[in-house]
Amino acid sequence: MEDQEILAKFADPAARNVAFNQLVRKYQSKIYWHVRKMVIDHNDADDLTQDTFVKVWNHLENFRRDASLYTWIYRIATNECLNFLSSKRRKFFMPLHDVGTELLQKVEADPGLAGDEIELRLQKAILRLPDKQRLVFNMKYYDDITYEQMAEITGTSVGALKASYHHAVKKIEQYVNEESHLN
């Protein structure tokens, strides 16, 4: 179903629940994986995905159609992730590397990466990036989001996003090669 159709249905109080259900079914997988790659843990990703869609429900009526629905939902999910990670650091007075260590431990324990050494190194390398650069990398590398859409989601210029992605790739390749050398 097209976004415009969902929005028109949502505006009708009698069809609102059906429209929201369709919206969730359309975007839940993309949003879940976007969040999951940022927070690694399934339970955290579940909480943040739900919070994202509850915010969508609360604010969809005021959604201005100058952005696409897809990028708008992505933006909410992105902010949820960044707030979650920064509040986690504040809450436990953790220095940056400690939250990073926690995420690394979760990646190492993830059954999806068991037996795939190169993929595990790649995931560990991605986790070493700063949160915002990791977001940019994930959106470009995994989700095939265009730089223009990323600019809408993050509020950053296309040029800055391209530079950020380029640097992220260099850092990742360097880390994976160093790790391969050590082992």
């Binding site: 869609f53 999806g112 993929e119 790649l122 995931q123 590398y141």
Partner: peptide, 27 residues
Amino acid sequence: HKRRPQPLAPPPADYFERLPRQLMARV
């Protein structure tokens, strides 16, 4: 490198079936 779109372990099998119902219950 061969890209894996979802490199981490998938969520529980019926997760995406349950999620819309859980969300409707919340809102």
